[in-house]
């Protein structure tokens, strides 16, 4: 039963190393707990939108349960992607956690105003990141129980 379904996470991150860190944290979490994740990566904003709106090669992309969104992205910026997500009726319920290297308060406030569910400094300490994923996993698991 626990292995039955995986929580789909879309990581919108242009830096390979950062993505690698996230990947490793997820793996380490899977090794320690019964949570199962399905990671997808979009390397820029445009790709993220293609994935979310199932365009082009992402025609059959799954609907993610969590989006980790870097704000500084090539092509389409993270804030724009966030705005698009919040405009869409089906997508707006997906929690978006914003990742950023800056501690700029202004940026943070703008992100929350635009509907971000959380804010993580990247790279986050593995403990912090793992705690976040665990929390979301628990919520998601409880939310889908009645199904």
């Amino acid at each position: 039963m626990p292995n039955e379904r995986r929580m789909v996470i879309l990581v919108v991150e242009d830096e390979d190393l950062h993505y690698e860190l996230i990947e490793r944290s997820v793996k380490s979490l899977e090794a320690k707990t019964d949570a199962r994740y399905e990671l997808h990566r979009a390397a820029d904003g445009a790709e993220a939108l293609d994935f979310l709106f199932r365009r082009g090669k992402y025609e059959n992309a799954p609907r993610p349960n969590l989006i980790l969104l870097d704000l500084r992205l090539p092509k389409v910026s993270g804030m724009e992607v966030l705005a698009e997500i919040k405009k869409d009726e089906r997508l707006r319920k997906i929690p978006v956690v914003v990742l950023t290297v800056s501690t700029n308060e202004e940026e943070m406030v703008r992100a929350y105003d635009s509907g971000a569910a959380g804010f993580l400094n990247k790279p986050a300490k593995p403990e912090d990141f793992e705690r976040l994923l665990t929390t979301v996993w628990e919520y998601w698991r409880i939310a889908r129980l009645p199904e």
């Binding site: 830096e15 190393l17 950062h18 860190l21 490793r24 944290s25 380490s28 500084r72 290297v101 800056s102 700029n104 400094n121 990247k122 790279p123 986050a124 300490k125 593995p126 403990e127």
Partner: peptide, 22 residues
């Protein structure tokens, strides 16, 4: 400065933290 200069340092920090944690 705030982003590009910071990003590599923070990536390195991320790996150090990962190593220390895992």
């Amino acid at each position: 400065v705030s982003h590009d200069l910071r990003s590599p340092a923070r990536t390195a920090l991320g790996f150090v933290l990962t190593v220390l944690s895992h």
